[in-house]
Design a protein around this nucleic acid. Structure first.
Lengths: 229, 229
DNA sequence: CAGACATACGTACGGTGTACGTCCCCCTGG
DNA sequence: CCAGGGGGACGTACACCGTACGTATGTCTG
């Protein structure tokens, strides 16, 4: 009574579910097989090995990003939206996100966000090298941010890590001690948006005026400072 | 003939050597024990479990950062130096760096860089909340950058990944295809410095003028634009 | 010298990824 | 209609993993 013929997609879906439910460490071929009510070795008919499976998981997560890109919108707004799209899936698949950021993908799934971002930057007036460098920096920021955000909640922990204020030696680390309350509390979304805005502003300042570039963006190139927190 | 009495430090050192030589995946308690010419279970007299050992490795790597902080120097230069210090150890222990960035540390070893950075930012005129937010963003950028840099060289591979230019479908990803040469080649150091400079400039622009803040920094607050690449 | 304690170590158990061989079903050529 | 072949499901087996537990051996203390 084969409920469904068992495919790579079904395996990947089961893997994602298992990871989100029990954590990335709990994943094993045997667990996945049990999840699907299937023998262990049957998995290897659809996936060459565990590492490849994890890459498939990462790609599947990445490909669920929803880009509602409006080419007519302000380029700063488009960048904002794309950055938030990343953060959104990281929130939707917190445990699996670690896989996405900690392994570099060579497939096309990871290329679509790159295409969107580069197109946006090019249309904003950045030349090729500028667009690539700016994008790399933006990705580095996003990856680093998400790593901390999802890493800080290994099990979506409601009690983050309120041990700093009393543990730090005020003599050794005076500045840290004096700022302990700020370091303890953390609004991830606000922090993320702060970084995005700061980067957008930096990009706007740095962007070279291409001679024939559309000029309608000049207003957007210098966003009002009060946007920053 | 016990050459040396076997201590936590010796175990951690052996672990780091093994990781750097054979990769982070190749590490196991049995390998480490063999490396030290010792029984497996002897390790557990000095380390509670493998995870704790990996944390010790991360801390050991982190604590080798050399801060040559000159409190009299320009704050932008101090930020630059601290950022490069991170990158330097990432280059010195490329495989172990993955451990540092992928696990958050609760000890004091990771607190010293934070103390230095916060102190620098405070002395530069940033108030508490600003300093914390800016630092978090800077760390996110550094972590993301190093993750890509060391991840792109799983075994210090001399041939990185020259498969993009011919693999990408120009119809699906026109921008990526047109920029393929730029995306293929990558000077990590230049990219890193570019990001650091962009962030420093953004910080300088964003920083609020504290009423009684020292004004001698005003020149540094607006670095010459040509510093940016 | 007796005892206590820390350390090194061997054995054993449950779990892991996966190579290999076997079975069975379905699909096709005659 | 049947023979055969190919692919997917599966069991077994192996090498390796982390580590709980019991044991031996030193060294220091009373």
């Amino acid at each position: 009574m084969p409920s469904e013929p068992l495919s790579k997609k079904r395996i990947v879906t089961a893997a994602i579910g298992l990871i989100e439910r029990e954590g990335a460490d709990a994943i094993s071929m045997r667990r996945i097989a049990a999840e699907l009510g299937v023998g262990v070795m049957s998995l290897y008919n659809h996936v060459p090995n565990k590492d490849a499976l994890l890459s498939e998981v990462a790609e599947a997560v990445l490909s669920e990003i929803e880009f509602t890109d409006d080419p007519g919108a302000d380029w700063t707004e488009r960048v904002r939206i794309q950055a938030r799209a990343f953060r959104q899936i990281a929130h939707h698949y917190p445990r699996s996100t670690m896989l996405v950021v900690s392994r570099q993908l060579h497939s096309n799934a990871g290329l679509l966000p790159v295409e969107r971002a580069l197109a946006t930057l090019r249309s904003a007036g950045f030349d090729g090298p500028e667009a690539v460098k700016v994008l790399r920096m933006f990705i580095a920021f996003i990856v680093g941010s998400l790593l901390r955000e999802v890493g800080v909640t290994p099990s979506f922990a409601p009690l983050p890590a309120r041990m700093r204020a009393e543990r730090v030696d005020a003599a050794l680390f005076p500045t840290v001690a004096s700022l302990a309350p700020l370091l303890d509390s953390c609004d991830p979304e606000e922090e993320f948006d702060f970084g995005v805005e700061l980067l957008i502003q930096a990009m706007a300042v740095h962007r070279k005026r291409a001679p024939g570039a559309p000029d309608a963006l000049s207003g957007a190139a210098a966003p009002s400072p009060e946007r920053l927190s």
